[in-house]
Design a binder for these strands. Structure first.
Lengths: 229, 229, 229, 229
DNA sequence: GATGAATGAGGGTTCATTCAT
DNA sequence: TATGAATGAACCCTCATTCAT
């Protein structure tokens, strides 16, 4: 689609308002800064779409620009190059998530209840949003971007695993959990989330997978107290 | 690594046998066929290395050729194009594996014992071989190759899951396993293997992960009979 | 020849006018459009040279680019691919010519006089210009480009032949022409023009051929009234 | 078509007969020479087909070999390279024709009758045979092969034109022809043949052209004595 | 800042030619 | 002689990046 209306819009409306702003000497920086942030976001959103659809190497900045309704050159005003765009995309989307997850780990509630909450949060805030795509991008492209993998490990993985360990420790102490092997292998806890993200991108069209149910089944097994139901 | 030994191997061993072949007048096809198969394999091996290192899109056939000690044009004698090379690489490596796995599922032994055996086989036959890289390639590139994803689903995933379901069913009937949710979500069983493969490519240099131990811990939890040890 | 003057021309003349354009705030499109048209033309001209010299298949876009003083990639901003460049080259050069020829056919003058005029026009407007090369390209490459041959037949050949038929009809009615076979075989009339174009490309260096005289001799024979001079 | 039967034939039958020949010491050269000539001819025939269909540059020796039922390398046993194959193809086909044409010019019959005969011969021996394709190849590719154009000019064009001049001279002396301009422009006489060959390759599918009728109409005009019929 | 035309290095693919068998 | 696998130079086309406007 050539989107002809956009083109006009971009050409006329900004010009008019920027003139007004400058004339009023009200400090054009405010409006500009806002617009700049919007553009940056639009480019990042478009980049996520394209990188997800084609992978980093095969994605074309031309398509990113078109999707973001900016000119190709504009991308270079906000990002040094294609790789920087990619890496900042990952960072921008992940940074906020982690905080939330870590925070949640401090809640002082029974682990089963906590698990239920985590499932909900994960589904709503990750799996049903673009963050799922960001995570998948890290998984599929990370090996080619050592810095990115390191950032992701430091900022996300290690912190999440630490939080999990703390939770597991507490749950064991409280008698809510018997499997102390989870302290050594906390990766086992989020494993189904990983499986769901990969499955979703590869096999959902052949056999859909219900993330929520998958994770719940997993936690039921983990937190099973051994009593006959 | 350019594997310098390959070249020598290909040059010497066939020479010896080709004399014999010619003497026997069994036609030149025998030697040629052998050489052709060797070349095909060399190209596939080189391609796996390059695709694994750079991803499909960024890998260069030039490098594949160099690594396989053949000219660039030679690749096209064996494969229609880059994509065909990629897809045949996946198929060639996976087809034999599946059979073995399915076979194993028929063994009539306690499921714990079976799990131990599966861990060993997986580690030795997959994780410590190039097959691990093939699986990772499917996971990281599969979304861009619908046909490949379908092939992989039909030939590997669905069969493996069916075998798992049968095993789980038997184990439940025998009282070796309590979690019947695994019948609905058999993906939970191989989840740690997937985690290990992805982790290995992304985070091993920050924090190595012992696949064997990870999988054993997982199975310990799954097959836990609830009795206090 | 690389036509060094072009580069200068494109670089200087627009610069002068672009200042004016900007001052007038008539948008950057004017200058750009001009430059774009110039580039397109430069590419077409270069392509004609290369295609004429080597034939379509053997011509290299690299050489076309060099000759047009543009980068290789620039060609693809104006033409979809090599074949599109070739076909548009033919169309661009031929379309205007036909109109003129058809127009001329309506002139209400004795056919001999008309023939003299046609000879002059053909020599000046076709034979002594690049259009001769375009026609030769159609003749030498047309068989490999069915669409092009069809276009040429519909737009040029059939129209020219129709105009010739009308002229012949009129001439016969006026008693200026006796050979009514020309109504069935109007191709006989422009035959010497074709011969001249082919001869010129193949044998002129061995034996030059005077187109003008050839065509005149031909028309003298055709319009000969049979009276003894 | 893979033509599987041929392959076997080529492998077995020659082996048997060549052994016999060598055993009998009957001079293997005879059989070999014959077979060699056959192969050469097969290659030339295949080459004509391919060059005609695709043009010199775009034709592939692979296709020529396949069409001739020989291996690609075999072509190089008979021809130095692609260009030599092309040039020898032209020479081989044209040499015999010329002689016939020149010979015919000595016949001492009225020019009208002679023209009728030439039309027939041209149609039967050239237009309805592969020679038409050879001539078209000279016309379409000759400009890129100066040596070929020269050969063709020397061996065919100049001789044919000389013969035509002689005929015209005689016809004028006998009063069978009035247009002495034909002595200066003998090219006018075979012009319709050229038109027919080019038309045939380009426009026949839109509007078929009857060569015979075209040439007859042409000669009727040329030899018209001016008397009212 | 924003644009998008222009650049040109790079990579997939083809194919004439060679040469071991 | 004949074969056809192998070679690698060459060429079309793409696309990240630059820069004049």
């Amino acid at each position: 689609m050539p989107r002809p209306s956009n083109r006009t819009a971009r050409r006329t409306s900004p010009k008019a308002s920027s003139d007004a702003a400058r004339a009023a000497q009200r400090g054009p920086s405010r409006v500009r800064a806002t617009r700049a942030a919007e553009r940056r976001d639009a480019i990042l959103a478009a980049a996520l779409d394209e990188f997800s659809a084609r992978g980093f190497a095969a994605a074309r900045l031309d398509d990113v620009a078109r999707r973001a309704n900016v000119a190709k050159g504009t991308i270079y005003l906000y990002f040094a190059d294609k790789e920087a765009l990619f890496q900042e995309l990952i960072r921008a989307e992940l940074s906020p998530v982690v905080g939330v997850l870590i925070q949640a780990a401090h809640a002082d509630i029974p682990i089963r209840q906590f698990a239920d909450r985590v499932v909900e949060v994960f589904v709503r805030e990750v799996f049903e949003t673009r963050r799922k795509d960001v995570i998948r991008l890290v998984l599929t492209e990370g090996a080619r971007f050592p810095k990115l993998a390191e950032f992701y490990y430091q900022e996300v993985i290690s912190r999440v695993l630490a939080a999990i360990r703390a939770l597991v420790q507490r749950a064991i102490e409280r008698g809510e959990l018997r499997h102390d092997a989870l302290l050594k292998y906390p990766q086992l806890i989020p494993a189904p989330a990983l499986v769901a993200i990969m499955w979703n991108g590869l096999f959902d069209r052949f056999e859909p997978l219900d993330v929520r149910a998958l994770m719940r089944a997993h936690f039921n097994i983990l937190f099973d107290d051994g009593s006959t139901t």
